[in-house]
Amino acid sequence: MKKLYKQFNDLKIDEDIQAMPVSELEKARVKKNVMKRKNKKHLSRNIAVAAVIFAASTISLSAAYPSFAFQLPLIGNVFSYFTEQNKAFEKYNAYSTDIGKTKESNGISVTITKAVYDRESIAIAYLIESEKNLGGFPTFSGQPTVAEYKNLHHSSSVGVKKISKNQYAGLYVINLKDSMPIDKINVNWDVDAIQNLHNNEISTLGIPNLKVPGDWSFDFSLHALETDSILFSDISTQKKGVEVKLNKITTTPISSVLYLSHYADQAIRKNSEHVGLTYLITDNLGNKYKEIPAGITDFDAYSRDSRIATEAFDKEATSITITPEVRLSISPDKIKTFKMKPIKVQLP
């Protein structure tokens, strides 16, 4: 240990760096991990020592060191920036795969930090670092593709948050149309431009048609998390000519997915232009489950198959209750709503 502390003292560190308090447990955890690796030949001694100092002290680096700052655990957990939007993302980081790939082009650095796949969805966390302001919502021109799901329809959602000057955290969620027994997938993401999605912001930036061309290409593989599914054949509820069926529930370590369908009879079809449904999902403990964005729906005006993903059900819950709410569009200016009898399902 004396030798290690001597190396600490010999390091040259910017005095402007400000330390923040951290628990003794976290210090011990980081020190243990670094000490286990100190004999690896490919890691230089100074880098290992610096990692101990920075991580154990949870140092908040200035904007002059953004790339290194992103590698710290607390800053590098991109999922944490989106838990206010949906607390389902709290578990994503713990079950994700470290990707750690960075591409730089035209003054913009993009890093894919982590990703997670559970046969129901793919979530990709990334960081953007730019030499100039990219606005409030910079997005990529290209979408990720998955060779194993080439012919399978899916929907996606994008979340972007500005976390410091010219630095952004992003989360891309792909909801797969149906779960498949694919244990490993290969993801490709080719991006040839980054642009600000909030067009009304462009004029205030003084950069008309803000769009930065470049070349950011990523390839990585993901292994599936364990999943369990329950199939149903006779669970449904009916009211006022509308029937809702529960077809399947799939649970994974990071999410719970409900597959439902609804159908409207001829009387409804004759007197309304469209039938829409939303679902209130609760458990016997009183928890309410919010839908993860980018759910998938196949529908015409009166029948629909829906896939609804939420955060993982509480492990202590023994049942869930699904309450459908129907919206009948009688005319463009007239909508009727009513709630149906809840569907209650026992959990294994």
Rank of each mutant, 00 (worst) to 15 (best):
K344E: 07
L4D: 14
H154I: 12
N86R: 08
Y65L: 06
I194K: 01
A88H: 04
I230P: 11
I254K: 12
K240D: 05
S156A: 10
Y259I: 06
Q346R: 13
A55E: 02
S255R: 09
T227Q: 07
E104V: 14
I174P: 10
N106Q: 15
D10Y: 10
P293E: 11
E148T: 01
P253L: 08
S164W: 04
R119Y: 04
L328K: 01
V275H: 01
A267G: 13
K27F: 08
D283A: 02
A267E: 14
E90Y: 10
V191C: 12
L205M: 13
Y117H: 05
V275C: 00
V158D: 13
I13G: 01
T337Q: 12
S155R: 11
S303G: 12
S221I: 06
S155E: 10
K177N: 15
T282Y: 03
Y149E: 02
R45V: 15
D265S: 12
D228P: 07
K341N: 13
A193E: 04
K248N: 10
D234I: 03
S109E: 13
T310S: 12
Y126R: 04
S96F: 02
L171A: 03
S221V: 04
K103N: 11
E15R: 07
N175P: 08
Y117N: 01
L4T: 15
V187C: 08
N33G: 05
I268L: 14
S130A: 07
L134T: 01
S233G: 11
Q238D: 10
K3P: 07
S306K: 14
D300G: 14
V244L: 09
Q143C: 11
Y95F: 15
F299I: 14
L210A: 07
K341Q: 11
N196Q: 07
P21G: 00
I292K: 03
L4H: 11
K38E: 15
I322F: 13
K27D: 11
S319R: 10
A123P: 04
T297W: 04
E291A: 15
L171K: 03
I330W: 08
Q238P: 02
N151G: 09
T237G: 06
L134H: 00
N287I: 04
K211E: 13
D228N: 14
V191W: 05
A115R: 09
L328D: 01
A94G: 03
S306H: 09
N39Q: 03
G135P: 07
D192Y: 12
L152H: 13
Y92M: 00
K288L: 15
T251Q: 06
L225V: 06
T139M: 14
D215P: 12
F8R: 09
